[in-house]
Design a protein around this nucleic acid. Structure first.
Length: 357
DNA sequence: AATTCGGGGGA
DNA sequence: TCCCCAGAATT
């Protein structure tokens, strides 16, 4: 490895001193309960603090311990996760809770290696739990730390490349102190979230600015280097908003895959050259219903890797259709708003209610 | 090594 | 718009 531009043990004291004055008070910072720390770490994966706090509180009210979580049906876990995104996290969380109860006797393991056996717990999350709950000397490498290290060492390569990843982990390990690991870990994440910002870092407020190589070279605005982004494809779908006596037909998506376990109105995909209304009529024949479709317009919903264009069609019927009740459910309008619909269909519901239904 | 997986917020 | 967020699992 290249020669270090500063003494690595100079970092932690500066961060700790800064954190004791400027650190934020967050709900999961008051505890050393591994269950609560684990839950917060999973919820915070690729998710902002502001988005998580409400979910975190609500989740703990429903599942105050790993035993409660393990005993719950998976659907209940998904429902409490609805709106937070990345639903595999909820499935993995539930599976890990069962594993903890059944194989670990309800006790959390303390080492990174063991923690990484839990589904949904990778190297960084394992490090976080080990450091935060057990004061173990374990590094993390989340988005905050990655950005800070890229600047601190003026790393001139794309931070997601495998070479950079290896280098960053090495630095993360060097900087992580043996003592006060909990506070150090919270501190470095806080610094990234409030001072070493992606754009326009607040270097005047940074306790590491004197040591920062990017700052020394005037590169703090340029680093970390940007990854080149691909164009996002567009997917087309159509949804059938089937109404009978004020109730609408909804169903749960399959438990795995995109938006797993969330509710939606029956939906079909529209390939290039296909007509949405014709595909919806195929759906109608599945349900053995007929009548005039009423177009309700389009919804656009942005995902990280594609854009969804969703066409809406409403149909009111009188006869009770032959719908498999196991997979489908009739839901009144006021119930729909409480349902764990995914984002695009929440928008569809709003459009439906705005249309005078 | 590249892709999949959400939704929200800031500039 | 574009980018990022307390990343992990799958291909």
């Amino acid at each position: 490895m290249a020669e270090l531009p500063f003494a690595t043990d100079a970092i932690a004291p500066r961060l700790l001193a800064w954190y004791s004055k400027q650190g934020r008070a967050l709900p999961w910072r008051q505890t050393r309960d591994p269950y609560r720390i684990w839950l917060s770490e999973i919820m915070l994966q690729q998710t902002t603090v502001a988005a998580v706090i409400g979910y975190y509180q609500r989740f703990l009210e429903n599942f105050p311990s790993v035993e409660h979580l393990a005993a719950a049906p998976q659907e209940a876990v998904i429902d409490l996760w609805a709106g937070l995104g990345y639903y595999a996290r909820a499935r993995n969380l539930h599976a890990a809770a069962k594993m903890l109860v059944e194989e670990f006797g309800g006790e959390f393991p303390q080492t990174v290696t063991e923690l990484q056996q839990l589904p949904g717990v990778g190297r960084s999350t394992a490090g976080a739990i080990s450091a935060l709950a057990f004061e173990r000397h374990a590094p993390i490498l989340d988005g905050n730390v990655r950005r800070i290290l890229c600047r601190l060492f003026a790393l001139q390569q794309p931070p997601r490349s495998s070479a950079a990843e290896k280098q960053l982990w090495h630095w993360a390990e060097l900087l992580t102190p043996v003592a006060d690991v909990h506070d150090y870990t919270q501190a470095i994440m806080d610094l990234g979230a409030t001072v070493c910002l992606p754009r326009k870092p607040l270097c005047e407020d940074c306790p590491l600015s004197e040591l920062c190589q990017a700052r020394e070279f005037g590169l703090e605005q340029q680093l970390p280097l940007k990854q080149k982004s691909k164009p996002v494809p567009i997917r087309h779908e159509a949804a059938l908003l089937l109404e009978k006596q004020g109730k609408y037909l909804v169903r749960r998506r399959p438990a795995s895959g995109l938006l797993g376990g969330l509710w939606e109105f029956p939906t079909v995909s529209i390939a290039d050259g296909e007509m949405a209304e014709q595909k919806v009529r195929l759906l109608m024949s599945d349900f053995a219903v007929s009548g005039d479709l009423r177009p309700l317009g389009n919804i656009t919903h942005i995902y990280s890797h594609f854009r969804l264009e969703l066409q809406l069609f409403q149909l009111s019927i009188d006869d009770f259709p032959q719908v498999a009740e196991a997979e489908n459910d009739w839901c009144a309008a006021e119930e729909l708003s409480q349902l764990a619909l995914h984002g695009a269909h929440k928008k569809a519901l709003e459009k439906l209610q705005g249309s005078g239904e």
